[in-house]
Design a protein around this nucleic acid. Structure first.
Length: 882
RNA sequence: GGGCGGUUAGCUCAGCUGGUUAGAGCGCGUGCCUCACAUGCACGAGGUCAGAGGUUCAAGUCCUCUACCGCCCACCA
């Protein structure tokens, strides 16, 4: 037998173990009619991504599920892949070429795209390697990329289908514009953040009488250059008389009308609002309604344009300052108030977005949302924790159309072609040879690309390359087998971005749900509660943790401290839990292996002959199987931290602390060896989904040649071994031992001093158990002589230490403070009697349940069977007490 | 303006369907290098479960309100 090192060193194990799995091709999943499928699609990380704690948590959870289900006999498929991450990747590559003093415009579109692909080849799979470090058991042979040809075909297909159904349209609207990335963004990509800004009050003079004016208030003074009206509420007495009159827009000297609109809030600002239809969504709506002029005053990069008069080419914020100065000089700036406002920020570069009028492509969302809402309402898709259901429904019911075109280069080109001759718009899967209308060959493809999420929302089925071309039986069969997937594991941040849209796409294109469950885990934060992010510099690098503590330690720690759906606060020290536990598992196994001596060829199946087992053997089996039951249930309910702490508790504090210590008395005996072995190997299997590396390594060190633990089976629950009575008995013995140790410690009796203990008991049952386990007590408490008998010791504490041999008299019933215990029992008994009386009275009233009004039953929350079972339990309690 | 989460030991947090004496890890105190493990072992101290009402035979757990902390959504110029 190999000698195992004294401390577990993950660095010598993990890579080797992972490679062995890969070599045996254990990750591959295939259609297998005999097995039930279990499938998960990974939330595809960005190719620009590097593994952070959020990934670590997210992927550990998925890997636990996948490994658990695989062991339970399912055909487990974890579909991996990466996302091309349009803006993020383009930004990264632009940064990269900036080192060569190049902008993307210098390279031109084609060459730039080539550079992105090259960049992708070099860095794009970093995150995949890091996921392997974490132990992820994805089917890597299927690794998808959202820009792959096959995947891209799905996207084009979907675009054409939606357009055909009238669900995609093009139009001029106010969208979120990032002046730095030069692209439109969806609402979800432009989250609003609170800003400390100002509210500026301007005077707009009347045309007829320059001394009179209307005062307006704004937070974005620079947009005033594009004002084409001033709006007031029609019911506002202050302004009613001015409606229809003409004002002169200062600085620009444009004539603008005063209009009336219900949208104007009388109470805000001055009650009169400047209207800039080209730079504000509300004003846009008003502009459409009132037929106003749309004056765009900005370049796409955020500088003012030719419509801005003398402010042309100034940056928008520079222009703001100058305009304020000029207005002040003209005595038109009344006052400035501090004002809390919120403005959209680009989710990629954090630049303040500009509401900007431009022509974009949109998806009509309302029709898509309907089936997706119904599915969740009917429980076809369940959220865990359930509270997210409401968040999802609320968003879905107020859904807005989705702006899907982006003015960047890296992404899926929009499959739309324009005829330069007759301006025909052609939507087509492939580039048409000529214009169907005028036969011209001068066709130009729309320069824009699609929102990255337009590819992600197809992920659950596009990864199977749906829709299937004729003869593509392989993908079709697999799709039918593995789809819908079982669960989607993700963080709350992308419920709207991604989860909701996937559900809509699932129904629209496959007619089915894309997944049955959605498990939303918490956000990873640092120990002060701040979200971890690179820019804040508060990240804990998972790879560093893996480097020093090991992947298993990382996995186990993060799982056991993350309660279902709660955010998790991390500091590096918290990973010691997992490291220490791994070391414990290592050493327990190491110890058990030494007990096998040379005779390892024991008949390992005979443990079923329970009759020949010792009490402690039966006890540990009982404890194991009840732990197994709990853990299996917890995993089935996505209660990962419960499962992790349960196995931790069992393995460390029951198996190691007590059972292994018990067995040291009978280490050479065959039955002891068998049970030690059995419980160990079963525990390793239960631990495997949480800590795959160390369990595989130890498994391979167990006697006999064996297949990897990764493809072993989840232990079979054997209920007949679970015995509550037996567990209580040993629990009692453990209490006795603890009490003796306690006395030893309290009286400062040195560990080396041998003592004599006299135990007395009242209940014969206890006495028998104690006698049965006398040797264990003596060994674990270092007791030289132990006397057990009825009524030997007095019914109170009486013990003393002698110089040579301490003698300790302990009445068993008095291990816990006898008087206190007695009064507690009496009190408890009285309470039980009281409860019994009340409940019995209610039951006696035979027709109670029928006669009771519904709301009372509701209120008491007790059904008739509830009453009866309560009664039964209380009666049992009473029996025990007598 | 809506919605959600949190408030339990010195710290970080568990506690699912209400039911014996409210738990863990870390930290702290005492004693141990006991031949698997000092990444360890044994023992211990430490909690009026944010506050106030209510429902119930029984409330950390359910209901109502209040306070503080945090998050999300919204067309607050």
């Amino acid at each position: 037998m190999k000698e195992l090192p004294k401390a577990y060193d993950p660095r010598t194990v993990e890579d080797r173990v992972y490679k062995s799995w890969e070599q045996r091709n254990l990750f591959a999943a295939k259609e297998d009619g005999k097995k039930k499928p279990y499938s998960i699609v990974i939330p595809p990380p960005n190719i620009t991504g590097i593994l952070h704690m959020g990934h670590a948590l997210n992927n550990t959870i998925q890997d636990i599920l996948i490994r658990f289900k695989r062991m339970q006999g399912h055909e487990s498929l974890w579909m991996p892949g990466t996302d091309h991450a349009g803006i993020a990747t383009q930004n990264a590559v632009e940064k990269d070429i900036a080192k060569e003093n190049l902008r993307r415009q210098d390279l031109g579109r084609e060459e730039f795209i080539e550079r992105v692909w090259k960049w992708k080849e070099e860095y794009g799979s970093t995150i995949i390697h890091q996921l392997k470090k974490l132990g992820a058991s994805c089917d890597w042979s299927r690794t998808r990329f959202t820009m792959d040809d096959a995947y891209s075909r799905v996207i084009t297909d979907v675009f054409v289908r939606l357009h055909g159904k009238g669900l995609i349209y093009q139009g001029n609207y106010i969208i979120n514009w990032c002046p730095r990335c030069h692209t439109a963004l969806s609402d979800e990509e432009a989250p609003r953040k609170e800003l400390q800004g100002s509210l500026y009050y301007f005077k707009y003079p009347f045309k007829d009488d320059a001394k009179k004016y209307v005062m307006v208030a704004t937070t974005r003074p620079e947009t005033m250059l594009g004002d084409t009206a001033v709006a007031v509420n029609p019911k506002d007495k202050r302004y009613k008389k001015y409606i229809g009159q003409t004002l002169i827009l200062p600085l620009i000297n444009r004539e603008i009308k005063i209009i009336a609109d219900d949208m104007v809030d009388k109470k805000f600002g001055t009650g009169a609002v400047k209207v800039t239809p080209a730079h504000d969504p509300n004003d846009y709506a008003m502009g459409k309604k009132h037929g106003l002029e749309f004056v765009n005053v900005m370049h796409p990069d955020g500088r003012m344009n030719e419509n801005a008069g003398e402010y042309k080419d100034m940056d928008r914020f520079e222009a703001r300052k100058v305009i304020l100065k000029d207005l002040k000089e003209k005595n038109l700036l009344e006052k400035v108030e501090p004002h809390q406002l919120s403005a959209g920020h680009c989710y990629r570069c954090h630049t303040i977005i500009e509401p900007y009028l431009s022509k974009q492509w949109f998806v009509k969302m309302k029709p898509l949302a309907k089936p997706a809402i119904d599915a969740v309402k009917k429980g076809k898709i369940k959220f865990y924790p359930a509270r997210w259901t409401k968040v999802y429904l609320n968003w879905m019911e107020n859904i807005h159309d989705w702006c899907i075109s982006r003015q960047i280069w890296w992404g899926h080109r929009i499959p739309v072609y324009y005829c330069t001759q007759c301006e025909e718009v052609i939507v087509s899967n492939a580039r048409p040879d000529k214009c169907p209308k005028c036969n011209s060959e001068a066709l130009e493809q729309d320069p824009d690309v699609l929102d990255t999420w337009f590819s992600s929302w197809l992920w659950p089925f596009a990864t199977f390359y749906w829709p299937f071309s004729e003869g593509d039986e392989k993908n079709k069969t697999e799709f039918e087998y593995f789809y819908p997937t079982n669960v989607l594991v993700t963080a709350q941040e992308i419920i709207f971005f991604w989860v909701a849209r996937m559900i809509m796409a699932g129904f629209e294109f496959t007619g089915e749900i894309p997944f049955k469950d959605v498990y939303i885990h918490g956000t990873v934060r640092d120990d002060t509660g701040t979200k971890m992010s690179k820019s804040l510099g508060n990240v804990i690098d998972p790879l560093e943790i893996i480097g020093s503590f090991g992947a298993d330690a990382l996995r186990f720690s993060i799982i056991s401290i993350t309660a279902t759906g709660q955010d998790v606060f991390l500091s590096p020290r918290r990973f010691e839990i997992g490291r220490n536990f791994a070391n414990k598992i290592w050493n327990a196994t190491r110890y058990i292996l030494t007990t096998f001596q040379n005779d390892i060829n024991v008949d390992l199946c005979v443990y079923a002959k329970a009759a020949s087992l010792k009490t402690v053997d039966k006890w540990i089996l009982s404890r194991f199987f009840s732990a197994l039951k709990d853990i299996t249930e917890s995993l089935d309910n996505y209660r990962f931290n419960d499962a992790a702490s349960r196995i931790y508790e069992f393995f460390w504090h029951e198996f190691c602390d007590w059972y292994i210590e018990f067995t040291k008395l009978s280490a050479g005996e065959k039955s002891t060896q068998i049970i030690l072995y059995k419980v160990l190997e079963k525990s390793l299997r239960v631990l495997h989904p949480f800590m795959p590396f160390i369990t595989e390594e130890l498994w391979q060190n167990l006697p006999h040649e064996r297949d990897p633990i990764m493809i072993s089976s989840w232990p079979h629950l054997q209920k007949q071994f679970i015995s509550k009575e037996l567990e209580d008995d040993i629990e009692g013995v453990i209490q006795v031992i603890t009490a003796i140790r306690n006395i030893r410690s309290e009286w400062n009796i040195d560990q080396r001093t041998e003592i004599k203990v006299v135990l007395s008991y009242k209940q014969p049952k206890h006495g028998n158990i104690l006698k049965d386990l006398e040797a264990y007590i003596k060994k674990l408490c270092r007791v030289k002589a132990l006397e057990i008998g009825k009524g030997i010791a007095k019914p109170s504490h009486s013990a003393y230490a002698a110089p040579q041999m301490a003698e300790v008299y302990i009445p068993l019933e008095g291990i816990i403070d006898f008087e206190k215990e007695k009064s507690r029992l009496i009190k408890q008994k009285q309470e039980v009697v009281k409860r019994l009386e009340v409940i019995a009275q209610k039951l006696k009233n035979k027709n109670f349940m029928e006669r009771a009004p519904k709301d009372i039953i509701e209120k008491t929350k007790l059904s008739e069977t509830g009453f009866k079972s309560t009664l039964k339990r209380l009666e049992e309690n009473l029996k025990d007490l007598s």
